[in-house]
Design a protein around this nucleic acid. Structure first.
Length: 379
DNA sequence: GATGCCTTTCCTGGTT
DNA sequence: CAACCAGGAAAGGCAT
């Protein structure tokens, strides 16, 4: 366990390394911007410093302790808050623990800043004050796709995973406690879908579904059920790979291509998948497009560089990949793999290359639904 | 069962 | 050095 001094050192080093004075940043931090813009701006700023701030690429519940500290440091510095008022002994937690903190917890730890931090954490986690009934119609397929019947074993396992995170915990950044009305997040919206007809009983923890589906929760579909969630959350995605590696190793060399799913849990996963109706609109480029054409739900994941030309940029590449992975019930999705799939679209002219610009893509002539008028028609 | 499409996964090598 | 890009190869999953 890191001591308070060690934490302060990390904190200080990070601040010195990452947040050297930048005029643009300082301008954005002016009080006149107003709090309402704060979450958005922090996403934007984080994205601009994406090469430095690792936390900005991942969903908060996936952050390591280091990333949590980096985020705290960022936020304290951004708000010019006196770090002496912070109880650093409370900062030694990973993202999962952080996300389970109530607003009161954060206020206790960070004083008046805690409330703002709670708000931003909710933003970064994809919490939105949207009801399921206000979802745009063109995303109705999400309803079709995402319903997980309660008799579905995977759903029951997810609920087990959910319970492991504490179904009776206080209000946390994912929204309400389990007894409240269902809440939808972009994450669950784009990855899991949401069933507006879900009964209160079956919708329990719908806003928390992101936890259950997130890579670190793959306890639910993984093969190692006794792993401690707190300690394994960052290794689980790789744990799948380890299993594959050991089962696929032949003469010291791993077999090429996608490894077969052999183990019992994975077979269950496959069966579950087979039983489910495959929804339309599950293509990657459509998924990307749907994130882009709903900026109000975007969470700073992606942005248009040139809307009229269809040029867009990934701001939180790993977070988008994780969402895509959740959508495809694939815990081990990474930006690396997602980008490979994106590159296949070049040949089919669904996407066009944008040379020399990292994380930037452009819709091609064989894509549709992203242009202003098309998007408006879809709304 | 064969086929085709759309990824997914792994990999090597190059670039930023 | 990490992150990203490019693209070949092989395989999975699914619809037809």
């Amino acid at each position: 366990m890191a001591g308070a001094q060690e934490i302060i050192n990390i904190f200080t080093n990070y601040r010195n390394a990452v947040y050297q004075p930048e005029p643009a940043l300082a301008a954005l931090q002016s009080p006149s911007e107003g709090d309402s813009l704060l979450p958005f701006l922090t996403c934007e700023i984080a994205a601009e410093t994406v090469d430095k701030a690792h936390w900005s690429r991942e969903l908060p519940n996936l952050w390591s302790k280091q990333q949590v500290l980096e985020w705290i440091s960022y936020y304290v510095e951004k708000n010019k808050y006196d770090a002496n008022n912070i109880d650093f002994s409370c900062c030694n937690m990973d993202g999962n623990m952080l996300c389970r903190c109530s607003c009161e917890d954060l206020v206790a730890m960070f004083g008046p800043l805690g409330e703002k931090m709670f708000g931003q954490l909710r933003e970064l986690s994809g919490y939105n004050e949207l009801s399921a009934f206000s979802l745009p119609e063109e995303l109705a397929w999400i309803y079709d796709y995402g319903v997980i019947p309660t008799e579905d074993p995977s759903y029951q396992q997810e609920n087990l995973a959910y319970d492991a995170y504490g179904s009776n915990s206080d209000l946390n950044i994912y929204g309400k406690n389990s007894s409240d009305d269902p809440v939808i997040t972009l994450s669950s919206y784009l990855s899991d879908g949401y069933d507006s007809t879900m009964s209160p009983a079956s919708s329990e923890g719908s806003s928390l579904r992101m936890i259950a589906h997130s890579p670190n929760s793959l306890l639910s579909s993984g093969s190692d059920g006794e792993l401690d969630s707190a300690d394994t959350k960052f290794t689980l995605p790789n744990a799948n790979r380890l299993i594959d590696e050991t089962s696929d190793l032949k003469h010291g060399k791993r077999r090429r291509g996608r490894p077969r799913k052999f183990n019992k849990d994975n077979r269950e996963c496959q069966e579950t998948k087979k039983s489910k109706h495959s929804a339309r609109g599950t293509h990657l480029w459509e998924f990307i497009r749907d994130i882009l054409i709903h900026p109000e739900l975007n969470e700073g994941l992606m942005k248009w560089e040139d809307r009229s030309e269809g040029v867009f940029k990934f701001l939180r590449s790993e977070a988008v990949a994780q969402l895509w992975g959740q959508r495809k019930k694939n815990s081990s999705m990474t930006y690396e793999k997602l980008s490979r799939a994106m590159r296949y679209y070049y040949k089919r002219e669904i996407l066009e290359r944008v040379d020399g610009r990292r994380l930037v893509y452009k819709f091609g002539k064989n894509s549709s639904g992203w242009k202003d008028e098309q998007a408006l028609n879809r709304s």
